[in-house]
């Protein structure tokens, strides 16, 4: 437990949760990563949260768009946070 990057190795081949910039979140099985937090996820699901302004009521409506990606490379510079827990 000496280094944060070493700790991520414990999550290899396991389900992880990633918070990305632009209100995106990913879950999936971690197959690879490097020191830049570039990663490859298997059976990933992306949740993209956006706000729409209702033209009539002017209220803010939060929408969540989900999509699945069987195998995806994620560039590390978009990553904010990683967790091994997917329950939240």
């Amino acid at each position: 437990m000496m280094e944060p990057l070493e700790m991520i190795k414990d999550s290899l081949n396991k389900q992880i949760y990633i918070k990305l910039r632009n209100d995106r979140e990913l879950t999936g099985k971690l197959n690879a990563f490097d020191q830049h937090l570039n990663m490859i996820l298997e059976n990933a699901e992306e949740t993209h949260t956006s706000v729409e302004l209702d033209e009539e009521t002017y209220e803010q409506v939060y929408k969540q768009n989900k999509r699945s990606m069987p195998m995806v490379f994620i560039r590390g510079d978009g990553v904010i946070l990683l967790s091994s827990h997917t329950d939240h």
Binding site: I8, L81, H88
Partner: peptide, 22 residues
């Protein structure tokens, strides 16, 4: 770890890794 946005608790994580540039 607890995540606070605008002072409000939004999420909890059993363990969390945060990328240093943020």
């Amino acid at each position: 770890t607890e995540e606070y946005v605008n002072g409000q608790l939004k999420n909890k994580y059993g363990d969390a890794f945060i990328r240093g540039n943020n």
